[in-house]
Design a protein around this nucleic acid. Structure first.
Lengths: 210, 210
DNA sequence: GATATATCGATAAAGGAATATCGATATTCC
DNA sequence: GGAATATCGATATTCCTTTATCGATATATC
C-alpha cells in the first residue's frame, strides 16, 4: 500500500459509498470512467486514486466492484471498529451520538461526557453520558483513541488537553477554536465557518452578476 | 479586492474568529507573526492571505485589529445577513436550527422542512418546521438563496432538485451523497466520512509504530 | 487468428498553493 | 539625526496535486 495524499484519502470514502450503492444489483465490474461520471471527477483522477489502494483493474474490464470495496474498507480501516467518545452533550453532541451512519465508517461512539449536572447521568440512544471527570478513567480502561469535541469554543482547549492526557490520539473538533496538541495527536477540524465562507462568497458573486 | 483561492477563503473565518477574540483587551494592533503562531500557520501565509482582503499593514506596526476585522467581515459578507432553510428536521437538522453561533457568520436559518407528518407543523427554537411541499413557496417569497440538506442520502438529490427549482443558489450538503446541480449553483459538501478517513488513517499509522 | 477497441498504468506536463528570499519602510534607540 | 530593528509586500522558488499523453493489454469482432 502506497502513500496517499490527504486529498486522495478524503476521496476514498466517496468511492466506497458509491461502489457499495452499486454492488447490489447490476454488473460485477465497473470502470474508472463510470465512477468519474457518477461522482463528478475525472477518470484519470479516479484511476490514480484507486491505483494507490488496490492492486488494479484490467484493460477492457475495469475493476471488480467487490474487490475494490474490500480494498477500500481495508485501507480505510473500516473493518476494525474504532471506539470513540464525545465531549459536549449539547444538541450537536447528541445528534452525533444518535447518528446511525457512523458504523458504516467503523466508528462506534461508546459514551459522551459533559460538565453539566443536568445531562451527566442521563443517556442518549442507549449511550451513557458521564461527568467529564470520568473521561480519563473510561478512555484508559476501554483503550479509546478517538475523541470528538462538540463543546463551546471556550472549553475546547481544556477538553483537548484532557483527551490527550487520557491517551486519545485523534481528535475530531467541531468547536470553532484552534487547539494545540502534541505532534503525535491529530486534530481534524470540522470547520463549519469555512464552509459558510465558501457558500457566502459564491452567493455574493452570483448576485453581483445579475 | 482580489481573487482569493478556496484555501485562503477557508482560512479567513479562522483569522476573523481569532482577531475578534483578541480585540477586547490588549493592544490595538497585531503582527502576521503573532497570528501565525496562535493559529499554527506560517507568517508568510498569513501575510499573503491578509494582503488579499485588506489594504495592508505597516512595517514595524503590523495590522490594526479593528480594521482587519472590518475588512474580513466585509469580504466574507457577514455584514449582510444570509437567510437559509434546512431540509431534513431530524436530530442534525434540529441541532443546526438551534445553534446560536451561525449569526456570527451572517447565517440566519428561517425555517426547516420535512416530509414526515410527525415534525411538520412543529417548531424548534421558535423556528417553524413545514412540510416539504411548501419549500418553493417560502423560498420564493422570502428570496432565500441558501439551502441546507440534513436528510438521508437517498433523498438528497430529490431535495437538491427542489431547492434549485426554488431559486436556491448555494447548497450546504450534510447528506453522504453526491448531488448534481446546474453550474450556477454551488454545492458545499460537509463530508464527515472524509474527516473520519483522515482520523482513522492517522490512528492506524500511529498504532502501527508502537 | 488478426484487427479493432476499451480500458488500464506509467510517465510527463501543467497548474496552484505554500514557502523562501529580499528590498522597502516605519518606528525605536542612542 | 542616524543606525538598528521589526515588519511588511513583491517576486521567485519549491512542492504538491491535477490533468494530459501514450504505450500496453485483455476482450470482442470478424
Amino acid at each position: 500500500m502506497n502513500y496517499v495524499s490527504r486529498q486522495t484519502l478524503e476521496r476514498l470514502p466517496v468511492y466506497l459509498r458509491f461502489l457499495k450503492s452499486q454492488s447490489k444489483s447490476g454488473p460485477l465490474n465497473t470502470s474508472a470512467k463510470a465512477i468519474a461520471e457518477a461522482l463528478g471527477l475525472t477518470e484519470i483522477q479516479v484511476r490514480k486514486d484507486l491505483a494507490a489502494i488496490s492492486d488494479g483493474g484490467k484493460p477492457r474490464i475495469g475493476y471488480i466492484i467487490d474487490d475494490l470495496v474490500s480494498d477500500l474498507e481495508e485501507f480505510l480501516g473500516y473493518k476494525d471498529v474504532n471506539d470513540a467518545v464525545i465531549v459536549g452533550a449539547g444538541k450537536l453532541g447528541k445528534a452525533l451520538m444518535s447518528y446511525k451512519g457512523f458504523s458504516d465508517y467503523g466508528l462506534n461512539i461508546v459514551a459522551a461526557f459533559d460538565t453539566s449536572d443536568d445531562v451527566a447521568g442521563t443517556e442518549e440512544e442507549g449511550k451513557p453520558i458521564f461527568h467529564l471527570d470520568k473521561l480519563e478513567d473510561l478512555c484508559r480502561r476501554m483503550n479509546i483513541r478517538i475523541g470528538i469535541i462538540t463543546a463551546p469554543a471556550e472549553s475546547a482547549q481544556y477538553i483537548a488537553d484532557k483527551m490527550v492526557k487520557s491517551g486519545i490520539l485523534a481528535i475530531w473538533n467541531f468547536a470553532p477554536a484552534h487547539i494545540e496538541v502534541p505532534q503525535t495527536v491529530l486534530v481534524k477540524n470540522e470547520n463549519m465557518a469555512a464552509s459558510l465562507a465558501v457558500l457566502s462568497k459564491h452567493l455574493s458573486e452570483q448576485l453581483m452578476n445579475t
